[in-house]
């Protein structure tokens, strides 16, 4: 698992290198259409955060269920 995470992180570092030449396609798209997609990304981040929280509560409840 640790190796996998390190590999993904290393890959992300190389992505950063590609992004250095001018602007990437992703940032161009997000900055277009009067920047409305910036709001979409932020709302998605908030939803992901809340879902992550749900999973953490789920894990704790599962442990409790096993004990009882």
């Amino acid at each position: 698992m640790k190796k996998l995470i390190t590999t993904v992180l290393m890959l992300m570092v190389t992505l950063q290198l590609f992004a250095q030449d001018q602007t990437s396609a992703i940032t161009d798209t997000l900055a277009g259409s009067e920047k409305i997609y910036v709001v979409v990304v932020c709302v998605a981040v908030i939803l992901l955060g809340l879902i992550f929280f749900l999973f953490s509560i789920d894990r704790r409840l599962k442990k409790l269920e096993k004990k009882s």
């Binding site: 259409s33 009067e34 920047k35 409305i36 910036v38 709001v39 932020c42 709302v43 908030i46």
Partner: peptide
């Protein structure tokens, strides 16, 4: 500059 991204006010600030 802000354009439509001002709508983030309803999501970023309440956090």
């Amino acid at each position: 500059i802000l354009h439509q991204s001002i709508r983030n006010l309803y999501f970023h600030v309440p956090m």
